[in-house]
C-alpha cells in the first residue's frame, strides 16, 4: 500500500470538507474492496476519509412498505433486520450472501453501491427495486446511478448517505457464484409490483456492468412464471468472457438464474 493519510469524519459535512481539502482523496466505509485494492497498489488515494462512524448514515427504517437504509449500514445488519425482512426478504437474503461473515460485518451498502463493481450484488437489487440513491446533494434514481464498470453518477466529494425504495409485492435474488472469488458470476434480481410492473436486473454478467433485461421484464409482465422466460433470448455479445465463464455460458446463467428467481419470489 502506498502512503496515505487517514481521517475519521464525524459528520457528512465534516467528511465533505475533508475530501475537498484533500488532493486525491477517497471515502472509505467498510473498506472491504478499497483496502485490498490499495494493498495491491491498484489504488493510491492521498487521503482516506472514514465514513463508518457517522451516526446519520447508520440504520434501517421501515415505514409501511417504504424502506430507507443508511449508507453505512453493514451487510450483516441488512441481512438480519427483522423489520426489513418482513417487507422485502429478498434484499436481506441478498445481503446474507455477500462475501463472507467477516466481510458482512464491515462492508456497507453505500460502499458497495458507490464502488459499482460489475460483480457486486447490491447494484442488481437497486435497479430491480427501482431504488433511489440519496446523497448529500440530491436523490438519484438507480436507473441513472450506475453508469458503467466501477462508474456511477456520483460527482467529486459527493457521498451516498442512504438508499430508499418501496418494497415490491414479490422479489428474489439468485446468484451463481464464481467458484474462486465467490462474487456473482451471474446474479439476477427480479421484482414485481402490485400494479404488475416487473423489473429484472442482472449483475456479474454484463460487459458494461449491471443492467436491466427489457425482454425478460416484458415476458414476465405478460406472465409472471419461470416458463415465461423460456423463449426470451439473452444476447451474449453484451456479456463478459473470462477464464471462468464465457459469454455464451453467462447468457445461459442469466436465464437460469432469472427463472429461479421468479420461482423463489
Amino acid at each position: 500500500m502506498y502512503e496515505t493519510q487517514y481521517h475519521r469524519a464525524s459528520s457528512v459535512q465534516d467528511a465533505v470538507s475533508r475530501m475537498e481539502a484533500a488532493g486525491e482523496g477517497k471515502y472509505v466505509s467498510g473498506g472491504m474492496t478499497l483496502i485490498p485494492t490499495m494493498k495491491q497498489r491498484l489504488a493510491a488515494p492521498s487521503d482516506l476519509i472514514d465514513l463508518r462512524h457517522i451516526a446519520e448514515m447508520q440504520g434501517i427504517t421501515v415505514s409501511g412498505r417504504s424502506v430507507r437504509i443508511g449508507a453505512a449500514t453493514t451487510h450483516y445488519d441488512v441481512a438480519s433486520a427483522a423489520a426489513l425482512k418482513a417487507v422485502c426478504p429478498a434484499i436481506c437474503s441478498l445481503a446474507s450472501h455477500i462475501g463472507d461473515p467477516h466481510v458482512r460485518h464491515m462492508g456497507t451498502i453505500g460502499g458497495s453501491i458507490a464502488n459499482n463493481d460489475p460483480a457486486a450484488d447490491y447494484p442488481a437489487a437497486m435497479l430491480a427495486l427501482g431504488a433511489t440513491i440519496v446523497t448529500n446533494k440530491r436523490e438519484i434514481a438507480a436507473d441513472d446511478f450506475f453508469t458503467g464498470l466501477f462508474e456511477t453518477a456520483l460527482e467529486d466529494s459527493e457521498i451516498v448517505t442512504a438508499i430508499s425504495f418501496e418494497a415490491p409485492a414479490k422479489a428474489a435474488y439468485q446468484k451463481f457464484a464464481n467458484p474462486a472469488s465467490r462474487y456473482a458470476m451471474t446474479g439476477v434480481f427480479v421484482a414485481r409490483r402490485d400494479n404488475g410492473d416487473v423489473r429484472v436486473a442482472v449483475t456479474g454478467a454484463g460487459a458494461n456492468g449491471v443492467f436491466r433485461h427489457g425482454d425478460m421484464e416484458a415476458a414476465l409482465v405478460a406472465n409472471w412464471s419461470p416458463d415465461a422466460l423460456s423463449n426470451v433470448s439473452v444476447d451474449a455479445s453484451e456479456l463478459l468472457s473470462d477464464i471462468h465463464a464465457d459469454a455464451a455460458y453467462r447468457a445461459n446463467l442469466v436465464k437460469v438464474m432469472a427463472k429461479r428467481a421468479v420461482a423463489a419470489a
Binding site: 473498506g31 463508518r52 461473515p101 467477516h102 460485518h105
Partner: peptide
C-alpha cells in the same frame, strides 16, 4: 464481531 484484520487499517 469477527472481521478480517488484513483488510482494515490500524487507524480505522
Amino acid at each position: 464481531k469477527s472481521v478480517k484484520s488484513c483488510s482494515i487499517l490500524a487507524a480505522q
